[in-house]
Design a protein around this nucleic acid. Structure first.
Lengths: 265, 265
DNA sequence: CAGTGGTCTAGACCACTGG
DNA sequence: CAGTGGTCTAGACCACTGC
């Protein structure tokens, strides 16, 4: 393992041992990337759960026999991916959706200027939660086979009494056994926080596709639309650790008092 | 200035000299943040132009009398904000919109699966470029006064012969003197690349608000819509260095063969 | 080959938290 | 006060580029 007297590059032992690519070509992978992978494994295996402290940088450095700076760089990346959260003086924590500050981290619908008071008046109406079979399309998105068991949830989010979001959510039945309408209704806090504590599934990343659509009559009824109203159709696939898809969600958003917000860097 | 024998924290000379907050409270600001600010100033002042190499890390370290590691951390952040681009073995370059790889970095409309061929068939139709006066709304967004001179550009983007995007663009007249329809039509490449090389304005960041709307008859005509079609209304404010707003843009996007794409982290 | 960015280390000290 | 993350340095060496 790395030690002061020899270079980490020429040393084939330690955590870097099998850094060899598919073709036998030595695929160079920096030490800190390998450390990052090891920490990631510990997160996936549940060694540290959402909200908990992980080992200190010094302890991790000792565990992996590398310098603190190398551990630090690994944590830097995990932290910028929102998998870990650093708190100076306290430690490094596993990120969670159950924090006041980052609630609804994935919801990009914001109140228009002058409508900010609506956020405080949010109200969730759980409509349905049932077992269904995966269509070809849903199976493809979730990496399953058509016909596999899914759980489908339907709900409405209202702001200031105005139904604004109609959502259908599909989850792999195998990972969410025992999810019922009642448990959803009783839960306080973000749904993704419930997934963490009740099912051990942490959503880490998501992709959305947005289109403009006209609602069908059923959808219009749930949103209590008076006349024909164009809506945003937001299709989301959410991923856990190691980029495994774990949720598909289709939301219909009213945008007369809200807008979908995005920052381009 | 910092040197091996004394701590950078207790040294009040060098680039860190006036790190004192508004209330006389010593507002601690890390050295690398100050270096970052100094590099940012050089970018704003045009010492290095988009596409050019900047000083090497060693040279910057010498210039600012800090270690290479500190310069490195400053460049790390500027690089993650897409203001600089590192190329191993070659140097660090000022980011530009005039690169093949990152063309249309801010355009989030993507072809639907099976429609990817459309991207190659893009076609721009410049419609209009005229001087107007800022409305109260536009003035607010651009940090100007109502009535100030603006340049308004209207154009259509078509894919595979289908008009898909109708855009209105507003620019501060003071920064874009001499922008004409003809120059826009003659320009090959991204509009933001033209802003860089012709007007010295580099767009660095942008925010978008997306809503679902029905087009008015004029808009429907430009997009050659047969019947009533809901569209995405995308309002963008783009910013240069130091977060100064330099462009407002309203786009109407057809989403029957395309979608607005977003990644949530 | 020299020059650039990229990685890794070891050690020192600062800023923050909590007992 | 000890323990945590955060900053800074100096030096060594690797990976990549182009002459």
């Amino acid at each position: 393992m790395p030690s002061p007297s020899h270079s980490p590059y020429t040393d084939a032992s330690g955590p870097a041992a099998e850094a060899v690519g598919a073709l036998g070509v030595p695929a160079f992978s920096p030490l800190y990337q390998q450390i990052k992978g090891l920490i990631l494994q510990s997160l996936q295996s549940g060694e540290w759960k959402p909200g908990e402290v992980i080992l200190s940088e010094n302890d991790l450095a000792a565990r992996y026999r590398v310098s603190q700076g190398t551990v630090r760089k690994a944590i830097d990346e995990l932290s910028s991916e929102h998998l870990l959260v650093r708190r100076q003086g306290k430690g490094t924590f596993v990120a969670t959706h159950a924090e006041q500050q980052v609630q609804y981290r994935f919801l990009r619908l914001m109140p228009d200027p002058g409508q900010e008071h609506l956020t405080a008046l949010a109200e969730r109406r759980m409509i349905d939660c049932k077992r269904v079979r995966a269509s070809a399309e849903l199976a493809r998105l979730l990496g399953l086979r058509a016909g596999d068991a899914l759980i489908q949830v339907r709900r409405v989010l209202a702001f200031g009494g105005v139904p604004t979001i109609l959502e259908d959510i599909w989850l792999p039945g195998s990972s969410f056994k025992g999810l019922t309408l009642e448990r959803l209704q009783d839960w306080r806090g973000p749904m993704y926080a419930m997934f963490e504590s009740e099912f051990g599934v942490r959503m880490v990343r998501a992709q959305e596709q947005v289109r403009a659509v006209m609602p069908d009559p059923t959808q219009a009824e749930w949103l209590e639309l008076a006349g024909p109203t164009p809506l945003l159709n937001v299709e989301r696939v959410a991923y856990t650790y190691n980029d495994a898809p774990m949720e598909v969600r289709r939301g219909l958003y009213r945008t007369d008092r809200h807008h979908y917000f995005n920052t381009l860097n």
